[in-house]
Amino acid sequence: MSTDNRLLHALYRDMRRIRSLEERVSELFVRSESAGSMLHLSIGEEGIAGVVHAMERQDSFTTHHRGHGIFVARGAEPARMLAEIAGKANGYCRGKGGSMHIADMGLGHLGANAIVGGGIAHAVGAALAYKRKKQPRVSVAFFGDGAMQQGILYESMNLAALWSLPVVFACINNQYGMGTRVDRAAANLAFDDRARAFGLDGVIVDGADVELVHETAERVLSNARQGKPGFMSLTCYRFYGHARMDKSPYRDEAEEAAGRARDPLKKARDKLIARGAKAAELDALDAEIAAEMDAALEAAVNSSLPSVDSMFEDVFAPDQPKPVPVRTRLNAILSEAAK
C-alpha cells in the first residue's frame, strides 16, 4: 500500500469503528440496557477521525455531549465505553458519568461535557499549563455548532490568541443544535471569520472528506504547537435525531437523504476502492470490527452495576472524608433525641 492508501485505510478503520460503536450504543438503548436515553450518536460525523489522527499521543482534548466518536478514534476500549453508557461499575467513570461525561486521563481525554460550551475553556487552561511547563503538547476543544453561539467560546478564543496558547478549537458543524438548523441560530455562518476576528487561524473544511480533514488538522495542530492557536470547523450532517428518542420531525426527508449522501465512511471506502483496495478486504475489516463491537456490547451488558455505597466515593479525593449519608445523620440525630 502506498503511504496515502495506508493513511486513508487507517482513517477508514477509525471511522468504521466509530459507526460500529454508535450502532451498539443504539442497541444498548433498544435492549433497555443503557442508563437513560440521552444518547447522542456521532453517525455522520466520522470525519472527526481526521482530527484525532492528527493529534499526538501527548495531546489532550475535551469533548461535548456527542463525543463517543472522538474517543473511539482516540483508542478508547469499546467495552469500557459501553459499560459506562450502561452505568456499570467497570465503565470509564465507574458508572458515575455515563454517555455525556466519559473521560479518560490516560488517553488525554479531559472530559465530555453536557453543558454546551462547558469544556471549551478547559482546553485553553490545559494549553496554558503546557506552555508554562514547556511541554510540546496541544489541547483540542471539540464542540458542536450550537456552542458557536455561547459567549464562553469567544472569551476562550480571545485568551488563546492573547496568550499564544497551543490550543485548537474544533467545531463539528452537523447543521443542527437539537431541532434548530444552524441558519436559524446564526445570522453569519462564516464561523472561520469569527475566529480570525480574534487573531486565530480559521478554516472551514468538508467533514465528509476525512483526508482533507486530516491534512487540515495536521496544519492547524502544528501551528498550535508553535503557539499559534487555531480554529477549524468540519461541515457534516447529523444523520439521526438529536438524542436516541428524537425522530427529527423538524426536517424533511429530502434534506435527510441529501445529508446522509454526504457519508464520510462511504466516501473513504469509494476512494480506497478507486485506489485499488479490494471490496472483500474492506468487508472483512468491517466484519472484524463488528465482531469486536458485538463482544464489547455483550461484555458491557454482562458487567455489574456499581454498589450503592460507591456513590459517596469521588465527591472528594479518596483520602478525604466522604459526605455523610442522610440516613447516618438521621440516625445520629434521632438516637441522640431518644436519650
Binding site: 458515575k96 455515563g98 456499581p306 434521632l334
Partner: peptide, 29 residues
C-alpha cells in the same frame, strides 16, 4: 422531637440507575 430532614444526598447525581435512585429520598425512607 427535633425536626427531621429527609433530603438528597450531598453528592452530584450519578448516572447509573441504582445510584441515581438512592441519591434522593423515596416514600420508604
Amino acid at each position: 422531637e427535633p425536626v427531621a430532614r429527609v433530603a438528597g444526598e450531598d453528592i452530584p447525581i450519578p448516572v447509573s440507575p441504582p445510584l441515581e435512585r438512592n441519591a434522593v429520598p423515596n416514600a420508604q425512607l
